[in-house]
Write a protein that binds this DNA or RNA. Structure first.
Lengths: 220, 220
DNA sequence: AGAATTATGTCAGTGCCTGCCAATTGGCTG
DNA sequence: CAGCCAATTGGCAGGCACTGACATAATTCT
């Protein structure tokens, strides 16, 4: 079972040895992979090397991750799930855009812990940048983001009680929101440095420009 | 020389036998590939089969296309280039969003010819849908779109005489615009049918919702 | 403890993609 | 037109990502 987003798993019954072992193997694979990527680059790291570093067979690697990209994006995937959950727990009265905006900020607040329980935060940050600068990884990341956007759209429609077939606004809003999130990620990645806090500031600043940017004439 | 977007190649001096032959080989590869993809699906078609259908060696295929994805996206890439060119030829007085909107519509107007000179239009349309529904291709497509958006952003900034480092609006506007373009493509793809005209209508309708979607409270 | 289930390892094989070198082809010059 | 130069192509060997099949080992259940 790959994803850990089982909403029925509260007050977990003692997870059992098997589950704990799998979790450890998975985490070790991620850590080994990210370290190697950071050391020698994504393309120059082979799956065999990752498997060896984690002391499992190559075949086992592919039982935990469908492909080499998946392990590079593993932490982002966790954060995505957290983001979704955060949005769902927002007050229903809140308007769509503020809800999305609030959810990202809250997510980044809490994401640190989730990440640190698997890999050092600065390794994750280096990975984040690596994804932006590695074509194959960026492609995979963008595809995953489009899936996230689909779920966001459904959630927004649900909150507002709208039919996605009849009202384009949820799709459009999420598309615009997602677009801005991606630009900020890219721009932040291009600046060689800066931490989570800078990303945060950049995001807020850009989100706040959504309205003005759409205004007809900028020269006014 | 991979890309054909040389803006200095007008009133072409007789292209020479060599160039014409390359062009023919390339077109044949594209046509063979798209036909096979449409027939047996992208993943179940091997590069060897494509090369054989086009009567060249596998090695030659990879001299024309960096990878299997490239040939599937070849026509989209041409249209992207056309879109860029169309935008650049717009009256400078036009405001950013109308310029973008006008450029897409004009592009789709003229794209038919460009495409038909290489592959039948309906084959292209089937390919378009295939891209949306094939994870690997969608990923590659999204990455290319992000490159297009980067160029759009530069063009918008140039038109408006703005510094991209200082003013976020070009980035934000293009991000929102690009987001909407992608959703419409996806939605259109999900409906199993409908031609270019439907895509056009959908796009216009959704673009027009950008303003309303960003309005704070939809229930008002 | 033994049976049933599940995770892991090994092996063989396919397909994408690359570097290298030899052979062919088009273009150009004397 | 002969002959040289440069570009294009083909063939081959090899690396790496990934998969199916089967045997083995580790948990869990009874």
């Amino acid at each position: 079972m790959p994803a850990i987003e089982d909403s029925a798993a509260r007050t977990a019954p003692p997870p059992g040895l098997r589950e704990r072992k799998k979790r450890r193997t998975r985490d070790t694979l991620i850590r080994s992979a990210l370290e190697l990527f950071s050391l020698k680059g994504y393309e120059r790291t082979t799956v065999d090397e990752i498997a060896e570093a984690a002391e499992v067979s190559q075949r086992t690697f592919f039982r935990y991750f469908a492909n080499k990209e998946e392990v590079a994006l593993a932490m982002q995937t966790s954060v995505d799930a957290l983001f979704l959950a955060t949005l769902r727990s927002r007050p229903p009265a809140e308007a769509p855009l503020p809800a999305l905006r609030g959810a990202v900020l809250d997510t980044w607040e809490g994401a640190g812990e989730v990440i640190e329980s698997v890999v050092p935060l600065d390794l994750h940050m280096r990975t984040y940048r690596m994804i932006e600068s590695t074509p194959q990884l960026l492609a995979a990341r963008l595809r995953k983001l489009s899936e996230v956007e689909e779920q966001l759209t459904r959630e927004i429609a649900r909150r507002e009680g709208l039919d996605l077939g009849a009202d384009p606004r949820p799709h459009v809003l999420v598309a615009a929101f997602g677009g801005v999130m991606r630009v900020t990620a890219r721009i932040w990645g291009e600046r060689g440095e800066g931490g989570l806090e800078d990303l945060r500031l950049l995001t807020v600043a850009y989100l706040d420009q959504l309205g003005p940017a759409l205004a007809g004439n900028w020269r006014a």
